[in-house]
Design a protein around this nucleic acid. Structure first.
Lengths: 154, 154
DNA sequence: CGCACCTTTTACGTTTACGTCAATCCTATA
DNA sequence: TATAGGATTGACGTAAACGTAAAAGGTGCG
């Protein structure tokens, strides 16, 4: 698959890796493919999380960008801030073992896991409190609607 | 009107009024008593959630305000926005049965409960994903630190 | 040619619940 | 009187992750 877009010729003047089938997609496709908005992709780029190539001023995303985006989305899903994600990604070095990166990721992950568990506890607590309040309210409503006339109450 | 002077308040923090008269506390005491900041109390007032009396320009909180604050804090704890809390409180009528208020509260509570459960599900999901990623990272680290020399992988 | 469609950059707006000054005022106490 | 401790009303700042114009340019199609 080559350029998937109207005006396929645009980038062909560029001798992009003729060897492998580097796949370039523009921002619209990229967005659709990953369920994000154009704004989001540009925002991530602005924050240094993505670095698509350019054909003039048009952004061209490769599979490298896709991989990065997937990581970003995973990070977001597990509750990392974009800042954290960037910090971890910035440590990536294609020529090394990335031990530092992995350690940082693990460290951050442990902390995030703790946060998530704490949040879950808070939510459980909230659910408990809310349920309790709801029973009270329900009871009050019963007393007001099911006993319009005076009566002896225990 | 009995006022608690700053000096007295400072010296007799636990001094309980001998009489069952109206007890007025100033913002500092109120804040301490409920673990909130002065800013918070003023903010709640600005948002129409509290309505302390005034001695000149000094705010004086009564037990009514305390009751309201307790409700606000409970609402906050279970995840309601201050706007929701206000909406519910605004329906309170000391002369009626408050059926409408109770119904609204119940309605909002049901929705909030649903939101909380959804959140919990998301968090559980996130915890799962994160744990999974962590094992992968750990494994990668093991491969990098425990096998500096060439070896069969897998 | 003109339109639809995609893309660009710039930049202010949104949401929620306060935090953080800043300048001023009042009061009790040593 | 000086100082310390509260209190008051503004009013801008913060965080996170985009949303939402606005104004403009390129492209192929009928």
């Amino acid at each position: 698959m080559k350029l998937v877009s109207p005006g396929e010729a645009a980038a062909n003047t560029n001798d992009i890796p003729a060897e492998a089938g580097e796949e370039f997609v523009r921002i619209g496709e990229m967005a659709k493919k990953y369920g994000v908005t154009l704004r989001t992709l540009r925002f991530y780029e602005d924050k240094g999380l993505l670095n698509p190539h350019r054909d003039g001023s048009t952004r061209l995303y490769t599979r490298r960008d896709k991989a990065r985006l997937k990581l970003i989305l995973l990070g977001r899903k597990v509750g990392f801030s974009l800042r954290d994600v960037k910090q971890m990604m910035d440590l990536y070095d294609p020529t090394g073992t990335n031990t530092k990166q992995l350690r940082l990721a693990l460290d951050k992950s442990e902390k995030q896991l703790a946060r998530l568990q704490k949040q879950r506890a808070l939510i459980d607590d909230a659910i408990g409190e809310l349920s309790k309040s709801m029973s009270v309210v329900r009871q009050m409503l019963v007393e007001r609607t099911a006993a319009p006339q005076a009566s002896a109450a225990g």
